[in-house]
């Protein structure tokens, strides 16, 4: 009768991904406590059980870090065997998260902000952390948004995902008091357009500069649609230039993960050629529809 290391069987981890995610949350909270870093745990086992009934755990751990603590946090992660795999600028249209890997604990998404909130990331963190709620994950106390904050976070996440089950569980089953509080919180965080996108109420915000962006994420579209939406939401000229630069450049981080190795110049050139051909094909299709 003995315990065995989690990687003992078949040369792979014997630990189910969901169990690994639980331990990852606990490990990361422990590291944050030691480094004096403020974190909020989001999604997966950090969510109140009744907000995600019947669902298996996430495949990665998600945390929101206080923006002013990011450098300290990432240094701590690196000192404990975590490797950063994507940059914030290339991780998503919202440039909001970095992706980390650890051989024992798997994937960790470190969110620098939560997409949909248009107040500063520091202010959003303060508001979401203010209730001081905690939940036990793997028997370690982890800081989380309170119920109202969790519902908002889940609906905002659903707003940019084809999977709307978060809305079903978190919003439709909440009582009127919670829903009213979530709407109030969304206004405080200037997240009302994103909330509307998650709830299927986006047409109430047709005149908002972020309308196209959220419609794209709610309904999908071509890459040109995405660019138009991101350009419309960019607050100034510099941001608009950055949007176009990012859109036209091959995402090396994603290419590295897809290939399973460092992309060569030839890989990038081939991928860039494919992107350009695809964009031209989309343009031709648009011209053909006129």
């Amino acid at each position: 009768m003995t315990g065995k290391p989690a990687e003992a069987r078949h040369g792979q981890s014997a630990m189910p991904v969901a169990a690994r995610v639980h331990l990852a949350h606990a490990v990361v909270q422990h590291l944050a406590d030691g480094a004096g870093v403020d974190l909020l745990h989001l999604k997966g086992p950090a969510v109140l059980p009744d907000l995600r009934p019947g669902r298996r755990g996430s495949t990665d751990a998600d945390v929101l870090v206080r923006p002013s603590h990011v450098d300290r946090f990432t240094s701590t992660l690196e000192a404990h065997g975590w490797e950063q795999r994507t940059e914030a600028e290339t991780g998503s249209a919202f440039a909001h998260a970095t992706c980390w890997w650890h051989d024992d604990w798997g994937w960790l998404d470190v969110h620098l902000s939560w997409p949909g909130c248009r107040v500063t990331a520091e202010e959003a963190f303060d508001v979401l952390a203010a209730p001081g709620a905690t939940t036990s994950v793997a028997h370690v106390a982890c800081r989380v948004p309170d119920r109202v904050g969790q519902v908002l976070v889940l609906v905002l996440h659903a707003a940019r995902s084809p999977d709307k089950s978060d809305v079903e569980h978190a919003w439709r089953q909440s009582d009127d008091g919670v829903r009213t509080a979530v709407r109030a919180l969304s206004r405080r965080l200037r997240a009302d357009v994103a909330l509307a996108a998650g709830l299927g109420e986006l047409d109430d915000h047709r005149d908002d500069s972020h309308y196209l962006l959220w419609r794209f994420h709610a309904e999908g579209g071509t890459r040109l649609d995405e660019w138009r939406a991101r350009l419309a939401a960019a607050p100034d000229v510099r941001a608009r230039v950055r949007v176009l630069g990012g859109s036209l450049r091959v995402n090396r981080d994603h290419l590295r993960m897809e290939l399973g190795r460092e992309p060569t110049r030839a890989d990038v050139r081939r991928r860039q050629a494919r992107r350009v051909r695809r964009a031209l094909a989309e343009a031709r299709a648009r011209i053909g529809r006129r």
Partner: peptide
């Protein structure tokens, strides 16, 4: 719901550097 097979399992680790252990 986290058991990996027929048997019950506990996933245990020291913080923060492991290693993870399956019992």
């Amino acid at each position: 719901d986290l058991d990996s097979g027929e048997q019950p399992a506990a996933y245990v680790t020291r913080l923060p550097d492991g290693p993870p252990m399956v019992l």
